[in-house]
Design a protein around this nucleic acid. Sequence first.
DNA 1: CACGTGCATGTTCACGTCAACATGCGGTCT
DNA 2: AGACCGCATGTTGACGTGAACATGCACGTG
Lengths: 318, 318
Amino acid sequence: MSGQTVSRVSNGRDNVDPDTRERVLEAMRKLGYRPNSAARALRSGRFHSIGVITFTLSSFGNMRTLDAIAIAAADAGYSITLIPVPHPTQGEISVAFGRLSEEAVDGVIIIVEAHLLDENDVALPADLPVVIVDSTAGDRYPVVDTDQAHGARLATEHLLDLGHRTVWHIAGPERSYSATHRREAWEATLREHGADVPPVLVGDWSSESGHELGLELARNPDVTAIFAANDQMALGLLRALHESGRAVPAEVSVVGFDDMEESRSFWPPLTTVRQFFGEVGRRSVEALLYEVESGERDDSTLVATELVVRDSSAAPPA
Amino acid sequence: MSGQTVSRVSNGRDNVDPDTRERVLEAMRKLGYRPNSAARALRSGRFHSIGVITFTLSSFGNMRTLDAIAIAAADAGYSITLIPVPHPTQGEISVAFGRLSEEAVDGVIIIVEAHLLDENDVALPADLPVVIVDSTAGDRYPVVDTDQAHGARLATEHLLDLGHRTVWHIAGPERSYSATHRREAWEATLREHGADVPPVLVGDWSSESGHELGLELARNPDVTAIFAANDQMALGLLRALHESGRAVPAEVSVVGFDDMEESRSFWPPLTTVRQFFGEVGRRSVEALLYEVESGERDDSTLVATELVVRDSSAAPPA
DNA sequence: CACGTGCATGTTCACGTCAACATGCGGTCT
DNA sequence: AGACCGCATGTTGACGTGAACATGCACGTG
């Protein structure tokens, strides 16, 4: 019984005598044999692993996307290697990308605000397939992202259609592309409908920042409709409105963005724009593996959104 | 210039002439040389990677733990290989553990309800170090977990100390060990204080289930204090109380468990038990790497909790 | 019966790295 | 001067796998 026969059994080839196969399997069991993936990777040049670079996982979107990526990858027979970048400082990012060249991966999915890539001008290993998620990357790499503009438009139009004269906006941080896209689409939609464009309030995605900015908005009696750039800020905003005694949605309507699992349990249940993170994850794996296996770069894609109307939005007070 | 010299430079050995080192680095840059981790792993027998088996990442605790694990591992020079088990059916679990033997990992951290291990009687590769997180595993493997009982005791005593005659409980699913531990500690604490033990309401961790059970509790005028086994169910519970017109905390006090980032922005801001997921992640990596590097099994550890008092708890109505 | 044919199984070798050992050169000590 | 030492660098081989090629056996055909 040679190593070759073991290899054949282990790889499920069919040109092995059933008796022999059985004896081999029996021996494997008895000896606790585990195929050595390092040797296999060395021989084949494939690691069957996808690297995922992300800052914090502690963000609803990143986490959901990662989950979907992991599942899609597993379905395709790939595992996920996480490459965390805990503190997005210049140095850390370079370190992470440097480490990348030593990682045993066939390709990389990057879930990082793209401006950080630009600013750091980091050189990814040239022959490594890359897909960027939830960001913008010129056209150096394929990008898979939620259609932020589409979602922001849905939210803004929903509020205008309810009869509000205009819609205020609590935006995400300036350096975030998704925040910028949502904000631009919100503004464009208002202009198209001939509505005033009120000043933007800039938060940092946290519910706490939504609360602070919300207290400010609550003081202004002209405000009847607010579009928050994510559900967490919407949550803080709802709290601010309650604390200020302004009824939602009777006096003020609120729309969020993301559709977190909890949003339906906010008080009142939140009208929001649903993102299909699962789809984003699936497509990014698809695009990456396409390049890994064919050598050709795939196109960028946008994933549509959907408005979920719950109880936090209604017509303005008469 | 032999391969050996390249190896020495690449590994940062000091017995290389500075001139030569420079020439080698220059050549590496020019040729885009990347050390082959498969060959390295083959030679050394170490992958410098930790496998993490988890069901869904879409749970606040798992995700935070994973984040901490990833960071702790990165600090120790290890990367994380995710092994998702999307659907925890008998078959899927066996598949995942089977796949494990082919993964390039030095050890495994399992974030899976332990009863699933028992029920499936899966054989992990015998020589692979394993650490279990957030669960219970007899004493087959070291376990790192939040001290669930301690947290539940803190929550319950807090409410009793405020003057409530007893505390109701919305528990997590029966098959979850953490849910069971919290529930048992809640019950034990009530008994110690000579308080009645009201019937338990069993949810499934989701805010939606908290809402449903909350509507039930809201109807009962005897209920003045409720301990929810996680913050998400507490969120749904708050909504149910609002909808039923019962003021929090004036009429009913609510305490959660987890301290999600959003909990401070609930309405009212939630009193809850803070879990130190970062610490759990760090310790589990520590325990695993101890075994990987020394060959000896580490002890199990519990991580303490902390009560965070906010506005959802107060003395009962007079 | 000689010869081919098909199939199971065996043998050889290369993948990239790095430990161990070998070489070779300039300098030092007696 | 001769022996020796330290240091940079080169050479060899082994890690486990699997493709490619080689062997050997059973069976069928003219």
